[in-house]
C-alpha cells in the first residue's frame, strides 16, 4: 500500500510536470469551453432540448478530456516508461505489475476528476451552466467512460513500440475523434450522414453517454454497451500484449 500511494503521488507530480499532458487534459478543454462560450454563449434554447449551447457542450468537453487521457497521455506515459527503461528498473524491485498499472490508472482518473471539476466550476461561474440533472448518474457515466478509455490507453501503450510511435498513433486517433465524436463540436450541428457515420468512433459513445446522463438524467444503454465492449476487449488484448521491456 505504501508503494502504491508513493508511486501514485510521484506519478501525479510527473504528470503535471509534463506540459503537453497538462495542457491537453486541463487546459485544452477549458480553452474550448471559454472560446466556444464566447462565440455561442449560453442563451436558453440555443441548443436542442431547450438548453443553452454551453450547457449542451459541457459533457462533450469532459468526453474530450477522457479521450486525451486515454488516447494520448496514458499510452505515451507507458511507452516512455518502457523506452527509458523505467519499467525495467521497476521489474527488479518487489513492486508488482498491477501496482505500476494501478497507479497510472489512479493518476489518470484523478486528472479526469480534476479537469471535470475545473470545467464544471468554470461553466457554472462563467455561463450559469446548471449541475447535472442526476449527479449520481452523471458520475457513473464519467467513471464508465473514463475506465473504458483507460483500457484503450493500456492497449495502445502495449501495442506501440516507442514513445514517438505512441505520440503519432495517439494524435492520429485523437484528432478525428475530437472533431467528429461531438466532443468539441456538438453533433446537432452535423449533417445526418456524418452523425450516423460517427458511431464507429468510441468517443462518440462516451460523448452521448455523458450528454444523456448530464442533460436528461438518462442512461444511454446503447452507448454503454458499445463502451463496455471496447473496454473489455481492450483489457483482454492489453493483458495479452503488454511487455515490460
Amino acid at each position: 500500500m505504501k508503494a502504491f500511494l508513493t508511486l501514485t503521488w510521484t506519478e501525479s507530480k510527473l504528470f503535471l510536470r509534463e506540459p503537453a499532458a497538462t495542457f491537453f487534459t486541463l487546459g485544452f478543454p477549458l480553452l474550448l469551453l471559454v472560446a466556444f462560450g464566447a462565440i455561442f454563449g449560453n442563451d436558453p434554447a440555443s441548443a436542442p432540448g431547450e438548453v443553452g449551447y454551453t450547457t449542451y457542450a459541457l459533457p462533450g468537453y469532459i468526453a474530450l478530456t477522457i479521450g486525451s487521457l486515454g488516447l494520448l497521455s496514458l499510452p505515451i506515459t507507458l511507452a516512455t516508461q518502457r523506452d527509458h527503461g523505467i519499467l525495467r528498473r521497476f521489474r527488479v524491485t518487489p513492486l508488482r505489475p498491477v501496482t505500476v498499472l494501478g497507479a497510472q490508472a489512479t493518476v489518470h482518473l484523478g486528472m479526469l476528476t480534476g479537469s471535470t471539476l475545473l470545467l464544471g466550476a468554470a461553466a457554472g461561474v462563467g455561463y450559469d451552466v446548471p449541475l447535472p440533472a442526476s449527479p449520481l448518474l452523471a458520475l457513473t457515466a464519467l467513471v464508465f467512460g473514463g475506465v473504458t478509455f483507460l483500457a484503450v490507453g493500456f492497449l495502445l501503450g502495449a501495442l506501440v513500440p516507442t514513445a514517438r510511435a505512441a505520440q503519432a498513433v495517439g494524435m492520429t486517433l485523437f484528432f478525428p475523434m475530437l472533431f467528429l465524436s461531438g466532443a468539441a463540436i456538438p453533433q446537432f450541428l452535423f449533417p445526418d450522414w456524418l452523425r450516423t457515420a460517427s458511431v464507429v468512433l468510441p468517443l462518440t459513445h462516451t460523448t452521448r453517454l455523458l450528454q444523456d446522463a448530464w442533460l436528461h438524467g438518462q442512461w444511454n444503454g446503447t452507448a454503454a454497451l458499445v463502451l463496455a465492449g471496447v473496454g473489455i476487449g481492450s483489457t483482454i488484448a492489453a493483458t495479452w500484449a503488454f511487455q515490460w521491456t
Binding site: K2, A3, L5, T6, L7, T10, K13, L14, R17, E18, T80, Q81, H84, G85, I86, R88, R89, V92, T93, P94, L95
Partner: peptide, 24 residues
C-alpha cells in the same frame, strides 16, 4: 542496477530515493 534501466527525466533525486524506498 540493470543496463538500459532509466528514470523519468523530471523526477528529482530525493523523489527517486523516496519512491524506491517505499517498495521495501
Amino acid at each position: 542496477q540493470l543496463q538500459d534501466a532509466g528514470l523519468p527525466d523530471r523526477l528529482t533525486v530525493q523523489e527517486a530515493v523516496d519512491l524506491f524506498a517505499s517498495f521495501y
